[in-house]
Simulated scan of single mutants.
Amino acid sequence: MRFVTTVVMDDFHTAQAGGGYVFSYDVQESEATLKAKIERWFSGTDPDALHMDPAEKRALFRFYWAASMMSANSACFDSIANPACSDELGGWIAREAANDPRFVRAYESAASALGLPALAPNPRNAQ
């Protein structure tokens, strides 16, 4: 969860500075309120704690899953800007995009509690 919070906070600060951003934020959002909302959302007790569209929530879960698959000494836990992190994170995101069974199981297990959208069917598995 710490990794996801770092990703969101970096995006939030970029948005506040007028740069491009990935996630949606409430107009009155502060760093403290956003951190609290992320924590509440990941607790599984309030799927609506984050006011983001379903694709954004899926992206947050994607980061969470990738972080859960990384080794404890991953470069990503030191700095997401580290080139080694980009390579490692990209590898896990590619596995998620290919519907890695570990991701599918984790996603489906958390979907209800986190208010995640249904997974789209993998065209590779279509008959």
Results as ranks from 00 to 15, higher is better:
Ala66Asn: 00
Trp92Asn: 00
Ser86Tyr: 04
Ser86Ile: 01
Arg2Lys: 13
Phe12Ile: 06
Arg58Trp: 05
Val27Lys: 13
Ala55Met: 12
Ser68Asn: 05
Ala15Gly: 10
Leu60Trp: 08
Ser74Lys: 05
Asp78Ala: 11
Asp46Arg: 14
Thr45His: 15
Asp10Val: 04
Met9Gln: 08
Asp10Trp: 00
Lys57Tyr: 14
Asn82Gln: 15
Ala66Lys: 02
Ile93Glu: 08
Met69Ile: 01
Gly18Pro: 01
Ser30Cys: 01
Ala67Glu: 03
Ala55Arg: 13
Ala49Ile: 06
Phe77Arg: 13
Glu31Tyr: 00
Asp10Ala: 12
Pro54His: 06
Val4Tyr: 08
Ala17His: 00
Ser43Gln: 11
Asp46Lys: 13
Leu50Asp: 08
Thr33Trp: 04
Phe63His: 15
Leu50Ser: 12
Trp65Asn: 12
Leu34Ala: 11
Ala36Val: 04
Tyr21Pro: 04
Phe12Met: 00
Phe12Val: 00
Ala32Thr: 11
Gly91Ala: 05
Met1His: 11
Leu89Ile: 04
Asp78Cys: 07
Ser68Arg: 12
Met52Ser: 06
Gly19Ile: 11
Ala81Met: 11
Gly20Tyr: 14
Pro54Lys: 00
Glu31Ala: 09
Thr5Asp: 02
Ala84His: 02
Trp92Phe: 10
Asp53Ile: 13
Ser68Phe: 05
Phe23Trp: 14
Ser43Lys: 02
Ala17Ser: 05
Ser24Tyr: 13
Lys57Gly: 13
Gly91Asp: 07
Asp48Lys: 15
Ala72Thr: 04
Cys76Trp: 04
Lys37Phe: 04
Ile80Thr: 00
Leu60Asn: 06
Asp26Ala: 12
Met52Tyr: 03
Cys76Tyr: 01
Phe12Glu: 04
Asp46Met: 10
Arg40Ile: 02
Gln16Arg: 15
Val4Pro: 07
Thr33Leu: 09
Trp41Gly: 02
Met69Ala: 12
His51Met: 12
Glu31Asn: 05
Phe12Pro: 04
Asp11Gln: 13
Lys57Leu: 15
Arg2Thr: 13
Ala49Met: 12
Asp53Met: 12
Ser43Asn: 03
Arg95Tyr: 07
Gly19Asn: 11
Leu50Ala: 00
Ala32Leu: 10
Asp11Pro: 11
His13Trp: 15
Pro47Phe: 02
Gly19Lys: 13
Val27Trp: 10
Ser71Ala: 14
Val8Gln: 01
Trp65Ala: 09
Met70Lys: 09
Ser86Thr: 02
Gln16Ile: 07
Ala81Gly: 10
Phe63Ser: 12
Lys57Thr: 14
Ser79Met: 10
Leu89Lys: 09
Met1Asp: 07
Tyr25Ile: 06
Leu60Glu: 11
Gln16Pro: 09
Arg40Glu: 01
Asn73Ala: 05
Asp53Val: 14
Arg40Asp: 03
Thr45Lys: 15
Ser74Val: 03
Asp53Ala: 11
Gly20Leu: 14
His51Cys: 08
Val22Trp: 01
Met70Gly: 05
Asp87Ile: 01
Asp53Arg: 15
Thr33Glu: 01
Ala75Gly: 13
Asp26Gly: 10
Ala72Ile: 08
